[in-house]
Design a protein around this nucleic acid. Structure first.
Lengths: 204, 204
DNA sequence: ACATAATTACGATACATTATAGTTTCGAAA
DNA sequence: TTTCGAAACTATAATGTATCGTAATTATGT
């Protein structure tokens, strides 16, 4: 439930539901910056330019707000466009990269990395959000690799799942740990030096 | 610096340096259980069976204690004494991991998974800690790979630096994002399916 | 050699400071 | 009659400091 429900009163001033979104967006911003424990309700209400009572009128606790903010964030996952078909796996994978930069999902990665203690109480929700963010990209990569496998470009024994996992792992590692963007050149190097040789020469 | 230094006074009662270790071990235990924000200095001193002043006499802040605890933790999970020399790169790399440290490395990954707000609030110290954990391991991995390269087991064009980076990236990704353990078996799979084939068949 | 003073570490605990979740109150607006 | 922003307020919790009586160690005096 991304927007809080409330038996709408028939009389009195109407609730401004645009504030729901403003609050959720602010929560995500601050989660990305400071993590779950670093986020305070005062920071959220200040950045959303609403009173704190307005936040608590919609969500009765910080945990519930964060839970809904994560679901809200996952909803705007990248849209699947048409699959590239250039003839080689390398250029297929690179072509998939072109539309959206790798730093596009930077904020989402930061949010997930800063979830810390929130995981303890809401592990399922957090993992759902994580999947919503990475699955689409991994699915596309996996599809392209499977196609390459079918046409004999890579080995029948190739570990496609792990290759996809390495891609995501390297992007998150560079953005969160090394604090530099995993550029398109880095991505090409990863493909040329490691992943493509491994996929081509995998043995039983 | 895993043990705090202090200009040893010539008079007075001597410091009991066994308490240093007790405090660090307690810190790791609690970090694994509760994460950075869930760990309190009172919990540490209680579990270590020392007074809180004894903790603060050695570390002037929680962040510094956590940093040293992490470095201490990583020291005990590697065989830094002797470089393995088993004849093959695969068993060399595997031998580098301590044989009976499965539970220990699980605890280690739990610790890493609970560090979210440590990164957010103490970025510089947290990065020192991460470097203290992974740098020794990467150095050893690189050395073993270079040796394998010299004896012709892997290609002269092998991208050793990126291979080492992938290892660290996968460990941190699994612990901090996916929140599941990157086990010894996972590590073996990474080597067998991706890294070793890539290193052996790398081309210009 | 022995006693005593000086000095430091120790565990325990009280304290001070600060931070934050959550509540309530206010006047204004719809 | 209800929502709004703003802000005061309460309750709680944790970091870091200070105090206290005691134990360990060294220096000094006899």
């Amino acid at each position: 439930m991304t927007s809080p429900e409330k038996a709408t009163a028939t009389v009195g001033r109407k609730r401004n539901h645009k504030l729901d979104e403003a609050i959720l967006e602010s929560a995500i911003d601050i989660l990305a910056e400071a993590g779950f424990d670093g986020m305070t309700m005062d920071m959220v209400s200040t950045q959303a330019k609403v009173g704190k009572a307005t936040v608590y009128r919609r969500w009765s606790s910080k945990a519930e707000l964060v839970r809904d903010a994560m679901v809200h964030m996952s909803r705007n996952s990248l849209n699947i466009e048409h699959l590239p078909d250039t003839g080689t796996l390398r250029s297929d994978l690179m072509a998939l990269l072109k539309p959206h930069s790798l730093e596009y999902s930077e904020r989402k990665l930061k949010v997930l990395a800063g979830l810390g203690s929130f995981y303890a109480g809401y592990q399922e929700i957090a993992e759902d959000a994580m999947q919503g963010i990475f699955e689409p990209w991994s699915v596309l990569n996996r599809t392209l690799m499977l196609r390459a496998q079918e046409r004999g470009e890579i080995s029948p024994q190739a570990d496609i799942d792990m290759a996809c996992e390495i891609i995501v792992a390297m992007v998150t590692y560079h953005s969160r740990i090394e604090h530099r963007v995993f550029s398109k050149e880095d991505y090409a190097t990863l493909l040329d030096h490691i992943l493509l040789p491994a996929l081509k020469h995998a043995e039983g």
